[in-house]
Nucleic acid binder design. Structure first.
Length: 120
DNA sequence: GTTCTGACA
DNA sequence: TGTCAGGA
C-alpha cells in the first residue's frame, strides 16, 4: 500500500512515516515511480513503534528492538529478547529517578514559598 | 489528486 | 512534527 493508505490506517501522518523510515524503523520498498510501497504488516509495525515511543524509548533504540515486539496493535507483546526487556527496564529506572528529582525540586519550592514574605 | 525530497518554523 | 516549495 502507498503512504497515504498507511497513514489513514494508522492515524500517523505521512510526514511521520517518512521520518520513521529515515530512522530505520520502517523499510518500504520503492515502486518504479519512486513511491513507497508498504506491506500490510506495516500497519501493525507502526502501532508497535507508537507503543515503544509512548514508553519513552528513543528511535535509535526502537530500531534495534522493534523485531522483538509481536502481538497485535491493541496489545504489543515484547518477546524475551535480551535487549528489549533490558531497555524497557532501564527506561523505567530512568523515569523513577526523574520523578524523585522532580519531587525534591517541588519540596524545595514549597520551602521557599512558605517562607516568602507576603503582601499585607 | 498523491507522493517525493529538502528546508524551515 | 507541520507545512511549504517545486516537480513528476
Amino acid at each position: 500500500m502507498r503512504i497515504g493508505e498507511l497513514a489513514r490506517a494508522t492515524g500517523v501522518s505521512g510526514r511521520l512515516l517518512r521520518y520513521y523510515e529515515e530512522q530505520g524503523l520502517l523499510r518500504p520498498v520503492r515502486r518504479g515511480n519512486g513511491y513507497r510501497d508498504y506491506a500490510p504488516s506495516d500497519v501493525t509495525t507502526v502501532f508497535h513503534i507508537r507503543a515503544l515511543l509512548a514508553a519513552g524509548l528513543p528511535t535509535t533504540v526502537i530500531a534495534q528492538v522493534l523485531h522483538c515486539v509481536h502481538g497485535d496493535a491493541a496489545r504489543p507483546v515484547p518477546s524475551p529478547c535480551p535487549g528489549l526487556v533490558g531497555h524497557l527496564t532501564r527506561e523505567r529506572a530512568r523515569i523513577t529517578a526523574a520523578m524523585s528529582r522532580l519531587a525534591a525540586e517541588r519540596d524545595a519550592l514549597d520551602g521557599l514559598l512558605s517562607a516568602a514574605d507576603r503582601p499585607a
